[in-house]
Amino acid sequence: MPVRTMLPAFVSLEDARARKGGAFPSPCVNVCRMSAVSGLCEGCWRTLDEIRLWSGLDDAGRQACWARVEARQRAAGLRGYCSGPKKSQPAAYLTRGS
Rank of each mutant, 00 (worst) to 15 (best):
M1V: 13
V3L: 13
T5R: 13
L7Q: 15
A9R: 14
A9Y: 06
F10R: 12
A16T: 02
R17N: 03
R19L: 03
G21T: 03
G21N: 03
G21S: 04
G22E: 04
F24K: 00
P25A: 00
S26I: 06
S26K: 03
P27M: 01
P27W: 01
C28Q: 06
V29A: 08
N30P: 00
V31E: 11
R33D: 13
V37Y: 11
G39K: 05
L40C: 05
L40E: 04
L40N: 03
C41S: 06
E42N: 13
E42A: 11
C44Q: 11
W45V: 04
R46L: 02
R52A: 15
L53I: 05
L53A: 14
L53Q: 13
S55P: 10
S55K: 10
G56P: 07
L57Q: 11
D58K: 08
D59V: 11
D59T: 11
D59F: 08
Q63I: 05
A64E: 10
A64T: 05
C65G: 00
C65R: 04
A67V: 03
A67C: 04
A67P: 00
V69I: 15
V69G: 01
E70Y: 04
A71D: 11
A76P: 05
G77C: 11
G77M: 12
S83K: 07
S83E: 06
G84H: 06
G84Q: 03
K86V: 14
K87G: 10
Q89S: 14
P90L: 09
A92C: 14
Y93S: 06
Y93N: 06
L94K: 12
L94T: 11
T95H: 08
T95I: 15
R96H: 07
S98F: 10
